[in-house]
């Protein structure tokens, strides 16, 4: 710290090894994360099909077209519906399960591992496999539901526009519940056990203990776990492309798929237009994330002041 009195250039020279150590990370992150964000903003002002080396500047025309495109708003709506259904379901179900599994009883590790198993598997392959598991004619889920007389006739979970998005929510929660479970278990283990023992001596029942000890102490974790889950829920490309490809009739087309379709699978790629869609949604999303991060900071600094 005595270096602080030296002039800036002398400090930088003295620390030259530090900058050498940073070079690989700065190069990679610069090329594959920071440059792409900046370039996307630039691309969003271009009319560019990708076959030519560069596009032509058209100002805000892409954005104007975007705001008038019903399929963009459809994708926007699907993403929001997905978030609003899937995030609370995953966070809440995992908390419930964590409270049950945060104890010592026979087989508890087996249960945790079973719930965690889908997490490590490849989302894109799970998406393909689930097409068959949910198939209306030969898929095991429909056979099980028919055999047990829960259903009178098979449900086309992925082929029906009314059902497909909800089926995708279900598969996504099934796939990732285990990781949220681990987050909650880690959070629960930070609560000192003697708090519960003291509460029990005072005659507080399990529900009261949960409401007055567990929930308040979990608040900062709730915010961070929800934030992580929201970020996850906007990155459902792997699962959605392989599960439904955005169909049927765009019923499950989320923003990622919309951008992918415009940029890579339409007859004439529209890289500028796709970038505008990605940027528009990215700004909305970062705004939501920023609100959550500010809330998290508030809660944390509130803790330190007490």
């Amino acid at each position: 710290m005595q270096q602080n009195s030296k002039p800036v250039m002398a400090r930088i020279w003295a620390d030259r090894w530090i900058y050498v150590f940073l070079l690989p990370t700065l190069t990679l992150v610069g090329a594959f994360t920071i440059y792409p964000v900046v370039a996307s903003i630039w691309f969003s002002f271009l009319d560019w099909n990708g076959f030519e080396r560069a596009g032509s500047f058209i100002g805000l025309a892409n954005y104007n077209e975007l705001l008038a495109d019903p399929l963009f708003w459809n994708a926007f709506k699907n993403t929001v519906v997905f978030l609003v259904l899937a995030v609370p379901l995953r966070v809440g179900l995992a908390l419930l399960l964590a409270i049950i599994l945060n104890a010592h009883f026979p087989l508890v590790r087996v249960f945790r591992t079973a719930i965690f198993l889908p997490v490590v598997t490849t989302a894109a392959i799970v998406g393909v496999v689930m097409r068959y598991v949910l198939d209306p004619t030969g898929g095991p889920l429909n056979i099980a539901l028919l055999n047990s007389h829960i259903l009178g006739q098979p449900l086309n979970f992925l082929g029906s526009a009314a059902l497909a998005l909800y089926s995708a929510v279900g598969i996504w929660v099934w796939k990732w519940l285990g990781i949220t479970l681990i987050y909650w278990l880690a959070a629960l283990q930070t609560i000192p056990r003697d708090l519960y023992e003291a509460a029990e001596l005072d005659g507080a029942g399990p529900w009261r203990q949960f409401r007055c000890i567990t929930l308040p102490l979990l608040t900062p974790f709730t915010l961070i776990i929800t934030l992580i889950t929201v970020i996850d829920a906007t990155n459902v490309f792997d699962l959605m492309l392989t599960l439904t490809g955005g169909g049927p009739f765009y019923a499950t087309e989320v923003i990622d798929i919309y951008v992918y379709r415009q940029a890579f699978t339409s007859n004439v790629p529209r890289l500028g237009y796709a970038s505008a869609a990605a940027i528009f949604f990215g700004i909305m999303f970062i705004a939501v994330a920023a609100v959550q991060i500010i809330a998290l900071r508030r809660v944390r600094s509130g803790r330190h002041d007490q």
Binding site: F32, T33, A39, F43, N235, D256, Y260, A274
Partner: peptide
Amino acid sequence: GILGATLVVPAGLTVIPIVDL
């Protein structure tokens, strides 16, 4: 600060320039 900010960048936002680069 920059590394922290990259945590919230959606993957769909970067893929076109990554392919181009």
